[in-house]
């Protein structure tokens, strides 16, 4: 039985690992910390998944696994900053980006652009960061985002609109 659950969760892992890693990385800006928190997210997710399947430890039904994983990740990032008393400092040399381009000049330009957007995003309020990441990077629909935030679709749409506007302003300021 556990083997079947392992297989099922393995598929979930494959589906969400990149998204969760990126979600965390954009908040902690360190490959090492992002890896630690991502693995912890999936470990907690796996434990909860097993408990839910075996109906033990009063585990509540996980209605939306995607939302559940993001929630674990968010809590872990919050805990991380709380424990370490750290502020989000963005440093370009900590970024690990897989880039197929080999031309150095082009690569530098892309990296610089990515750095700018990353820095600007990191300076947004957490909920604005989240809606941008979910909608534009992870392709979540407004309705899915609304469910994750436990808000109406209209509120989610407004929030996304505001987030995008603030991000645009920040990028314009940098230029």
């Amino acid at each position: 039985m556990t083997n079947r659950w392992r297989k099922e969760f393995g598929k979930i892992y494959d589906q969400y690992i990149d998204k969760i890693y990126r979600f965390i990385f954009l908040k902690v800006n360190s490959q090492e910390i992002a890896e630690d928190l991502t693995s912890e997210t999936f470990l907690k997710g796996w434990e909860a998944y097993k408990n839910q399947k075996s109906k033990i430890k009063n585990q509540k039904e996980i209605e939306n696994l995607q939302a559940f994983l993001y929630q674990i990740a968010r809590n872990l990032v919050i805990d991380y900053y709380r424990k370490k008393g750290k502020t989000q400092i963005i440093s370009a040399d900590q970024v690990k980006i897989i880039d197929p381009k080999t031309n150095l000049e082009e690569k530098a330009a892309v990296n610089s652009e990515v750095e700018n957007i990353k820095t600007a995003l990191a300076n947004l309020k957490e909920e604005y960061q989240n809606v941008i990441i979910w909608h534009y990077l992870d392709d979540l629909s407004i309705s899915e985002i609304a469910k994750m935030l436990n808000k109406s679709e209209e509120t989610a749409r407004v929030m996304l609109h505001r987030a995008l506007k603030i991000l645009k302003n920040k990028l314009n300021q940098d230029v």
């Binding site: 892992y13 690992i17 890693y21 890896e35 796996w46 970024v95 980006i97 652009e113 990515v114 990077l137």
Partner: peptide, 24 residues
């Protein structure tokens, strides 16, 4: 520009190793 952040990905070795560690 935002979508360029999709380039941020974990290393495939780490992904495989973590999967095996978590799922045993």
């Amino acid at each position: 520009k935002i979508r360029k952040l999709r380039q941020i990905k974990p290393s495939s070795d780490w992904v495989a190793l973590t999967k095996s560690q978590i799922l045993g």
